[in-house]
Design a protein around this nucleic acid. Structure first.
Lengths: 341, 341
DNA sequence: TGTGTTCTCGTAAACGTTTACGGAAAAACG
DNA sequence: CGTTTTTCCGTAAACGTTTACGAGAACACA
């Protein structure tokens, strides 16, 4: 069924070496011969076997994307990743690369699932998501000398790999700025308790902005919770019951914001009326919630494309002109003002 | 860096044939020898090169999942697929198979993107999503004799491939039953205008139930729209402006329901008060919408596992005892009663 | 005519496996 | 002790590519 390069060669009465060279556009092949080969390839419906090519070239022509689910009861995964994956895949496809998806054990950041990919050479590089502040997966890949890039920053591994992140720090600042401009001084911050790096970045921005405005940081207004609706639901009351009640809350995660709003509702506090709410990282949930939640929105699909681009630039086989390697990039978020603040 | 089977053989002073046999658990190798090989494999950190193995065995040990984005302006893709993918991947991983993700050109159901996978042998089988009533991709794969399975039914390709679907027909019926039981007689149905098969199935169930209750089907209460928020927003008024206004609407898609509710709001009609709303195929959006939308919920993660199971059972290399091949399965949805009906 | 260059192609090795085949040694059997 | 069977292992081919090497032919040039 599958026609091989040998079939082509036999059909054209020519050696497989020449066929291969013709197909791969090498210079040392007669123009007319190349034409015949190309034509025969079309009529015989030939395309090179990927395994054979991989074996010979020592490259699989595929990139693994590792999605690390959070533990917990989320019925639906994060919608975040579909558009990101779309962009990532689109760019990879342009370089004739496949996208492989690897899922980690929920909540387990050990590199076990990665080992298989690396050790059996199933992919040429890895893209990591849900980056933690300290991330075993990054340590593992660095140590193994396996090329990778990350969506999100980490403190692990140094500055040796491309990473693309959202500017959580700046978003934290801007959220505070906006709230202060609207007269708020007591602003709470609620973020995930996991070691996810963006939680730290957000808090840095939050603190920085508060200080800039001459507002003292009140630890009672900062709370960590589980990164889902339940976490937001549980932790929001803590903050609301501090001696001096906040007039605004910034949530660092959409699911936590929804849980938090539920808690607020039960306390008779209405977002947009009695309290201002801003969430960092918009999702459709924010848009359709009532009241619609003001949020900071990333451009996921372009980010996917970009990270693919950065990763490719770091791979010797795909690197363009020397010195174009991009190590880190941090993208701004766009504020989508809605009804909750 | 990468240790090959030759390194192992050299290290043990033994032939590569024996090493391979020992590793693959074949019978004709001495127990003690096997022990030594296994041990050496561990200390030398050996794992077989996937490309070499693929080439020799003529199988890639990976399955492609094709996601077909709808055209349109959806900022975030369908959250639907992440948990499905999780289940799919989990089951595949148990059989040491990789998951490759292929995205179609938005709205284009031509098998172009599939061609690459099939012709270059990049995967051993394909899983199709967003199945259309008539689906070129299915025709292509059937004709090519390439193994595949589908999430969702289609009329293409006959009964020759495993497929797993949600019971949209039954959900349509149950939605009508529930509404009728609550006193409704004028029930509208809004579904996507694309050739997506579930739209037909849903409508079949809707009609069937109406007839069973002795209610005449009013074409003015049935509308097709673009499968996103805008579509729901545009088409809902049509149905509301029919001579005899409906007292209930069943939406066949969550995004359309949200758009529809927006249109209703602008007409001063409140879901849950002035009109009953049920949506088929629940998402987090339904849960967090206000009022929370009553919806039918699939169990995505188990479905992913199951479809993987079915696909594997259809592959000669993985088939268990003969005759266990499952061709079609249709899973029920669970009603999640909330506030909108 | 002899020498050097260029163009084009064939040969064969290599990538890392798996496996059919055969053979030597050991065991079983009469 | 001779014969058959079993156990275990080495040899080598094969999967489908790519590519280093070399060689023949054609051509240019002196």
């Amino acid at each position: 069924m599958a026609s091989s390069i040998h079939d082509l060669a036999r059909h054209l009465n020519i050696s497989i070496g020449t066929v291969s060279r013709a197909l791969n556009g090498r210079a040392d092949v007669n123009a007319e011969t190349r034409q015949r080969v190309l034509e025969a390839a079309r009529t015989l419906n030939y395309s090179p076997n990927q395994s054979g090519r991989s074996l010979r070239k020592g490259a699989t022509h595929s990139i693994a994307f590792m999605l690390q689910p959070h533990p917990g009861d989320q019925q639906y995964g994060e919608p975040f990743f579909i558009p990101f994956l779309t962009g990532l895949q689109a760019r990879l496809a342009e370089s004739d690369l496949d996208l492989m998806v690897v899922m980690g054990e929920p909540g387990q950041y050990q590199p076990e699932r990665l080992r298989r990919v690396v050790e059996t050479r199933r992919a040429d590089a890895v893209v990591l998501a849900n980056t933690r502040r300290e991330d075993d997966r990054i340590d593992y890949l660095s140590k193994a000398g396996f090329p990778f890039a990350t969506l999100g920053r980490s403190q692990s591994g140094g500055d040796t790999y491309p990473s693309l992140d959202i500017d959580f720090e700046r978003a934290g600042e801007e959220a505070v700025d906006r709230l202060v401009a609207r007269g708020h001084r007591r602003i709470a911050a609620i973020r995930p308790s996991l070691d996810l790096n963006f939680g730290y970045l957000f808090l840095d921005g939050y603190r920085k902005a508060l200080k800039r405005h001459g507002i003292e940081v009140d630890p009672g207004l900062i709370a960590d919770g589980f990164i889902n609706e339940t976490g937001g639901y549980q932790v929001t009351p803590h903050v609301m019951l501090s001696k001096d009640r906040p007039t605004a809350i910034i949530f660092n995660n959409d699911a936590m914001a929804l849980g938090g709003c539920k808690a607020l509702a039960e306390m008779g506090i209405r977002p947009g009326h009695d309290i201002a709410v801003i969430v960092i990282v918009d999702t459709p949930l924010c848009r359709y919630f009532s009241p619609a939640l003001t949020a900071f929105r990333p451009s996921l699909e372009p980010m996917g494309r970009r990270l693919a681009e950065m990763l490719l630039a770091s791979l010797p086989a795909f690197a363009g002109p020397e010195g174009t390697r991009i190590i880190r990039e941090v993208w701004p978020l766009e504020l989508v003002a809605r009804e909750s603040d």
